Amino acid sequence: MSDQEAKPSTEDLGDKKEGEYIKLKVIGQDSSEIHFKVKMTTHLKKLKESYCQRQGVPMNSLRFLFEGQRIADNHTPKELGMEEEDVIEVYQEQTGGHSTV
């Protein structure tokens, strides 16, 4: 019986991991920090939209990076291997420009 009891508790931990929340720091170019608590399985588009709304800027005017890689709207913290207190960097999107060649 103890084996049966242990097995469901392991499964519960697996389920808990799926719905687990982590805190992420979003740091802007001006070094301002906003902290977000997100589920591991939530699409990061929600975090990006919330950040842009707080900053009063359109979402397409900023780019969000985690460990140097651009974050897509459909990425989740779990897919990117994010952990508690990880940092997302935000930069002004640069458009235009010309070749110097």
Rank of each mutant, 00 (worst) to 15 (best):
H98K: 08
G28N: 07
K7T: 11
L44A: 01
E89S: 11
I22W: 01
K17C: 08
P8D: 01
H35W: 13
E89K: 06
E89C: 00
K45C: 07
K17L: 09
S2R: 13
S2K: 11
M82K: 02
Q94G: 02
Q55F: 07
I71W: 01
L80P: 01
E18N: 12
G14N: 13
Y21H: 15
V38N: 00
G56R: 07
Y91E: 06
V38E: 01
L47I: 08
P58Y: 02
Q69E: 15
Q53A: 13
Q53F: 15
K45V: 10
M40H: 15
I71H: 00
E79D: 12
E83K: 15
S9D: 15
D3A: 09
D3L: 08
C52N: 01
Q4M: 09
V57T: 04
E93V: 08
A72N: 15
V90G: 04
V38T: 13
I22D: 01
K46A: 11
G28E: 05
F66V: 02
E84G: 13
R63L: 07
P77N: 02
Y51F: 10
E49T: 00
E83G: 13
D86A: 11
T41W: 02
T95A: 12
V38K: 04
Q69N: 12
Q92P: 10
G28D: 06
S32W: 06
E5H: 07
A6W: 13
I71R: 03
D30C: 00
K39E: 04
K17F: 09
K48M: 06
S2V: 14
L62S: 04
P58F: 01
K39D: 02
S99M: 08
T42P: 03
D73V: 01
T10M: 11
L24H: 02
S9K: 15
G19D: 12
I88F: 03
H43A: 13
E33I: 14
M40I: 13
F66M: 04
H75T: 10
L47D: 04
F64R: 03
G28K: 05
L47H: 03
Q29H: 08
S31W: 15
Y51W: 14
L65V: 12
D30P: 06
E85H: 08
E11N: 05
K7R: 12
N60E: 15
I88S: 04
H75P: 06
E89L: 13
V26F: 04
K45M: 08
K25N: 11
S32D: 04
I22Y: 00
E49F: 07
Q69H: 07
A72I: 15
K37P: 03
R70Q: 15
E85K: 15
P77W: 00
K45Q: 12
L44K: 03
S32E: 07
I71P: 03
E49P: 00
M59W: 05
K39R: 11
A72M: 15
E89V: 09
E11M: 14
K16I: 11
K45F: 05
Q55M: 15
G81Q: 12
T76I: 00
R54F: 10
T10E: 06
L80Q: 01
S32M: 08
V90A: 14
V26A: 14
E79G: 13
K37W: 07
G14K: 14
E93L: 07
L80E: 02
Q55T: 09
E93N: 10
Q55E: 12
T10G: 07
E11S: 11
E33D: 04
K17A: 09
T41L: 05
V26W: 02
R54P: 00
E18S: 11
L44S: 02
G81P: 02
I71A: 01
K37N: 05
K48A: 01
Q69T: 14
G28L: 00
K39G: 15
G56S: 12
C52D: 02
H43L: 12
D15Q: 06
E18V: 11
T100H: 08
Q69R: 10
S50E: 07
G56W: 03
G97S: 02
R63I: 09
C52K: 00
K23Y: 04
S31E: 06
G96H: 07
I71L: 02
T42F: 01
P8A: 12
T41H: 05
L62I: 15
P58S: 13
M40S: 11
G56K: 01
V90D: 03
T100Y: 08
G81H: 15
S2M: 12
H75V: 07
K23V: 13
K7G: 07
E83I: 13
I27S: 04
G81N: 03
Q4Y: 10
K23A: 09
G97Y: 03
V90P: 05
I27Y: 04
T10L: 13
T95K: 03
E18W: 13
D73F: 04
N60C: 05
K39T: 07
E49W: 00
I88C: 02
V90M: 06
K23L: 13
V57N: 05
E85S: 12
P58E: 09
G96C: 05
